[in-house]
């Protein structure tokens, strides 16, 4: 028996919006610690890892570890039927072949339930090692989204370079080239507007912009985004989900042959 009640149901709607274009089918894993997902995109270039901790739910009952295969397009269709202020409860029976999403309006005068068929998904679970990153950049998520969107009108790939001067995003294409440099700044009024750079050593990596643009669909989940980078390793693009968890996107770099 599984029963997870999320008062801020809009978070789940936003999570689905953030990942449904990157991943088609995925297993949601439910355990004592929380509700999580790990999935690669179809071309195996990016990986998404979601965690919603059990303590972030108003009610969290998970009698035994359960892995539920879901088609994210279909799940998103169902969650779109929930109001933004609705409380969402996810229910499933052990060994069942369906999951139920229950939506309650804030005033409790409307209750809906949507049952979705589960599917068997054969997916490989990857171990992500703890890494000391060469550079970690925290910046406003809207700013990062803007840069990725702007640069993708010029080129297909971006070089992200972190140095003591700041973080530089560079691209080039048929019509020309572009560089955007963000320097560290400290905002007295609002921490969310800060760009903070922690650098142990300079790092420069090349990535496909279309994946980064896809990750920025998570912008609505958090005012800030963190980019963690090390030489010749995947970048981690992390959005914290208020009080409950995070969504992390890992993107493999482009490396000289």
């Amino acid at each position: 028996m599984l029963e997870l009640r999320l008062v801020q149901g809009s978070l789940l709607k936003k999570v689905l919006d953030a990942i449904k274009d990157l991943v088609t089918d995925a297993n949601f894993d439910c355990s004592e610690s929380g509700f999580s997902l790990q999935a690669m995109d179809s071309s195996h270039v990016a990986l998404v890892a979601l965690l919603l901790r059990s303590d972030g739910f108003e009610h969290y009952r998970c009698d035994r570890n359960l892995s539920m295969g879901m088609n994210l397009t279909n799940m998103s269709k169902m969650l779109k039927c929930a109001g933004n202020d609705d409380i969402i409860t996810i229910k499933a029976d052990d060994g069942g072949d369906s999951v139920t999403f229950m939506f309650e309006s804030p005033s409790q005068d409307k209750v809906s339930d949507f049952e979705m068929k589960l599917m068997d998904i054969d997916s490989e679970h990857l171990g992500i090692p703890e890494t000391e990153y060469h550079a970690i950049v925290k910046m406003p998520s809207a700013e990062f989204a803007r840069i990725c969107r702007d640069l993708s009108t010029i080129g297909d790939t971006v070089v992200i370079s972190v140095s003591k001067d700041g973080v530089k995003f560079s691209t080039s294409g048929d019509i020309g080239s572009a560089n955007v440099v963000c320097r560290q700044n400290n905002s007295v009024d609002n921490k969310d507007n800060e760009t903070v750079i922690e650098m142990n050593e300079p790092v420069s990596l090349t990535f496909a912009l279309r994946y980064l643009n896809s990750f920025t669909k998570a912008t609505t989940l958090s005012n800030t985004v963190t980019l963690s980078m090390s030489k010749e390793l995947p970048v981690v693009v992390e959005y914290k989900i208020a009080e409950i968890g995070h969504i992390r996107f890992y993107l493999a770099p482009k490396i000289e042959d």
Binding site: H44, V45, L47, H125, L126, P234, Y250, A252, E256
Partner: peptide, 14 residues
């Protein structure tokens, strides 16, 4: 020419 790497190259299957 830079080549796109696969993500599974960096992580091990568990």
């Amino acid at each position: 020419m830079k080549k796109q790497q696969s993500i599974s190259r960096f992580f091990t299957a568990t």
